[in-house]
Amino acid sequence: MAPQKDIIIVNNLNKQVEVNNGTLTILKSISFRVKRGETVAIVGASGSGKSTLLGLLAGLDSPSSGEIFIDNAPLHQLDEEERTSLRAQKVGFIFQSFLLLPALTALENILLPAQLAGLTNAEQKATQLLEQVGLSDRGDHYPNQLSGGEQQRVAIARAFITQPAILFADEPTGNLDSANGDKIAQLMFALNKQHQTTLILVTHDQKLAAHCQQRLTMEAGQLTSVSPELSNVV
């Protein structure tokens, strides 16, 4: 049984995919742990397997072998429906391409996960979050009426509305200029602190990675370094 203080435990994780002429190894023998409330950056070159690892941690995909425990739940043993249910209870997301639904307003986009989860006071929470991300006067605007930075702020508010235990962010500033990127990073860390969420983010941005308490560096599907301390590695 994993100790309570670790919210994510990864043991000897492997991911292979079938391609035309054989098997391609994307992740090889990955192991690490993340404490509750910790901020972790996964860094590495393109194609190093960062996004695949994020997808596996969030239960979007299933590993070929190895173990993943999310808040004690053995993710590697769950089927798709069970993983979906786990995501609904514990996980929030921020994406590089924002992924707001173009047909819904900013406020409705924030509301959507809360409504689907059947949360009470959803509207009140959404309005509050909209205010926190500084867009209280843009609630009825559609995504195409917002700038990239504004869209990502809406996406951040949407990620926090269900009060997830873990927030996964895939290149959250990747589509933004540096000024907007800095603002988004500040906002994300501030909300993270406020909601005491564990943050796992994939980024190329060293500055953003430097904000995180722990940094996992990937290279050709393998975890090459864990900094600042190695004690978390099993």
Binding site: A58, L60, E80, E81, T84, S85, L86, R87, A88, Q89, V91, F93, L99, L101, L112, P113, L116, A117, T162
Partner: peptide
């Protein structure tokens, strides 16, 4: 396609 992928990410079950 994006909407469904996103709904699945939010943890919405396939029946829903």
């Amino acid at each position: 396609l994006d909407t469904v992928a996103l709904l699945k990410t939010f943890g919405t079950g396939s029946r829903t």
